[in-house]
């Protein structure tokens, strides 16, 4: 450091005292604070409990959280929880499996064949915005009032978003990998099975996340018609009886179901996509 200016005392005296450079690179970096989420829930519950007990929240507006918990306990003890949950899970499983597997198949076809794409993309775009609930009466005529119409509604609801997510994912598969496959003379079937499908898997799975959330939403709609048991039927019944405790207990079960489905997909993603 032989810079003459640095050692020049005259120069030094005329410049202001050295100052630390201010740090301005903070924020915009997401960090994990899991406990805050739990705390928000806890505070909301505590507020609701306090408010309803003190009376500044009327019992018409919100049920006591502890009563909801009690209702849930009764539901569990009576064995009805399982009666409702088992039929709902079956409907969800069968409907979503039908819709998602059909959706993936059609989405892959659209991604691979330009004729299929030309034919089916407009059709999918036309089907996507239809509120599936509006078609429920029609499904009852087509598939019967029992399980058929419920499977169909959930399947139809999961089908379109899965198709869109799948062909988008297939489109996004790295073309250079496909070209590599061709350059090694891999058969068409091998390229689809070993390159296109695994390459599209991240997109398909994130599409499934949305599709399955839609399936849970549609579960309530599906159980509007002719369902004696099921979480959706339980919620609708509670609504018509203006039984807020049961309503909230049912809604909480749906939320938990959503969290469960989301974490199952998370596990599948971690197992299938550990290469990312």
């Amino acid at each position: 450091m032989s810079d003459p200016k640095m050692s020049d005392p005259n120069h030094q005296s005329s410049s202001p005292a050295p100052r630390q450079v201010t740090f301005r690179g903070g924020g915009f970096a997401p960090a994990s604070h899991r406990w805050i989420g739990v705390a928000v829930f806890a505070i909301l519950f505590a507020l609701a409990e306090l408010g309803t007990r003190q009376g500044w929240i009327s019992p018409l507006t919100l049920p006591l959280p502890s009563d909801v918990l009690g209702t849930f306990g009764e539901l569990y003890a009576s064995g009805l929880l399982w009666a409702h949950l088992s039929v709902s899970l079956t409907r969800l499983l069968v409907g979503a499996a039908l819709g998602a597997s059909l959706g993936i198949a059609v989405g892959v076809m659209i991604g691979l064949f330009s004729y299929v794409r030309a034919g089916l993309v407009p059709l999918t775009a036309a089907l996507f915005p239809i509120p599936k609930i509006a078609l429920l009466p029609l499904f009852v005529i087509w598939f019967g009032i029992d399980e058929g119409s419920k499977y169909a509604l959930i399947a139809f609801g999961t089908f379109t978003p899965t198709v869109v997510a799948t062909y988008g994912a297939v489109d996004n598969v790295d073309r250079s990998l496909i070209r590599m496959g061709q350059s090694f003379n891999l058969s068409w079937f091998s390229i689809v099975r070993k390159i296109v499908l695994p390459g599209a898997m991240p997109g398909i799975l994130s599409g499934l996340r949305i599709s399955l959330a839609i399936a849970i939403i549609l579960l309530v709609a599906a159980e509007m018609l002719g369902a004696e048991y099921g979480i959706g039927a339980y919620i609708l019944e509670a609504g018509s009886l203006y039984d807020l405790e049961r309503l909230f207990a049912g809604v909480a079960i749906l939320s938990l179901l959503g969290v469960a489905v989301s974490s199952v997909i998370g596990i599948v993603e971690r197992r299938l996509l550990d290469w990312r």
Binding site: V140, I141, M224, L225, G226, E228
Partner: peptide
């Protein structure tokens, strides 16, 4: 069979559901 609306019940009854 809970069907929510009178209209839905009429439809289901007419079609034998």
């Amino acid at each position: 069979k809970p069907l929510q609306k009178v209209g839905a019940i009429i439809g289901a009854l007419k079609s034998g559901q």
